[in-house]
Structures are given as structure tokens and as C-alpha cells.
Simulated assay, not measured.
Amino acid sequence: MTGEGSDSWHIRLAREDDAAGFARIANEALQHGTGVVSSVPPDPDTYRILITRRHCLSAEADGHVIGFAACRPATRELHLEGLAVAKAWRRHGIGGSLVAAAVIDAANSGFQAITAITLGDEEGRSPFLERYGFVRIRDLGNQARLHRGVEQATQTGLPRDRLSAMIRFL
């Protein structure tokens, strides 16, 4: 999972000192309306706490964080709390590599599924995560945690009809 030549990058387990890079990239993604919707504030302290749980991944190039997948355990599922890639590094396969690595981590850690909340298109679809085996959960009646996450995202001003709770069973 690396680029080549001048686009050389790699994926690794996140370290606490990556938290500031996570926050910078998350805030950039919020401004451009990209990335996975997060129910946590995009600040270094919050990401530092998530990183200590040992399920966060960093994409790195030349010693700098250029993308991340922030995950946290949620009972039998691993929840993808945030996923974003720095604007200059998008369209290099980094986001997909982060998702694939998070899925591998979830499976190796014994989770039954990996979940996420995304801001989809006008029909609420998220083609990016769908390419990696995620499906939209249309009825959140049995998914209280994800229902709360969607409601929290709505309270921040995101349009409810474009929010999608998604799951990939392992």
C-alpha cells in the first residue's frame, strides 16, 4: 500500500503525535465537504484519545501525515469515526488503502463488522465506501448507536437526507 516515485507514501498504525495532522486534514475535509462524517470534534486532543485505542491508521509521505482513518471499537463493530486525505494527495489511492487496511484491522481484531456515517450524494449513496463492500443501512431502528450518530451530524447542520449509516460485515 504505497505510492511510487515522487508520490511515495505508506500506511502505518497511527502514533499520538499524528493527532495534529489528523485534525488539520479533518478540518480541511470539512471545508470541502469530503471525508467520512464524524461525531467527534476534529481537534488534536480528541484524535489523540482515539489513537491510544490502537485502531487508527496514518498515511504518511516524507514524514508527514497526509491522510488518516480514525477508528474506535463499538461493541462487536469497529466504527470508522473519520477518514480523510489531504487535498494535494487525493486521487492517489490513499483513501481506498486506508479503508482496506481498516477492514483488515477489524477482521484481525475479531470485530464482526465495520461501520461509518457518510455524507452521500443526493440519494444518500456513498459510492466510495460501496466500492469496499459497505452497504447502506436504510432502517436504523436496530442500530441505536448509528442512529445517534446520524442525529448528531444533523445537529451540526448536515442535511439529513444525504447522511448514510453504512456497514461492511466481515
Rank of each mutant, 00 (worst) to 15 (best):
G5F: 10
A101R: 14
F22T: 00
N142W: 04
I104S: 10
Q155M: 11
R76Q: 12
A61N: 12
C71G: 03
T52D: 13
L50G: 02
E16R: 09
R131L: 06
E16S: 11
D62E: 15
D105K: 08
A70I: 04
T118F: 11
S126T: 13
V40H: 05
R72Y: 03
T2I: 13
G95L: 07
E123G: 08
D17A: 08
Y132W: 15
R168N: 08
T118Q: 13
E4K: 15
C71E: 00
A116V: 07
R145S: 06
D43S: 01
R91Q: 12
A153P: 02
P73I: 00
A20P: 00
E16Y: 00
Q155T: 04
I51N: 08
A88V: 05
A69Y: 01
G5E: 11
V135L: 11
R125T: 06
E60Y: 06
H32Q: 14
L129M: 06
V37Q: 02
A86P: 00
I167W: 03
T34W: 10
R15H: 06
Y132P: 08
R54C: 11
R54Q: 14
T115H: 04
P73M: 05
D43W: 06
V150K: 12
Q112V: 03
I167K: 09
T34V: 15
A107Q: 07
L57I: 02
A113M: 05
L30Q: 14
I51F: 01
R53H: 11
G157W: 13
F134R: 09
N142T: 09
H147V: 01
S97K: 04
V40A: 11
L163S: 09
G3P: 13
P42T: 10
T118G: 14
G157C: 14
I94H: 02
R24K: 12
N27Y: 00
G95T: 00
V65P: 01
R138T: 15
E16V: 13
S38P: 08
P127Y: 08
L13F: 06
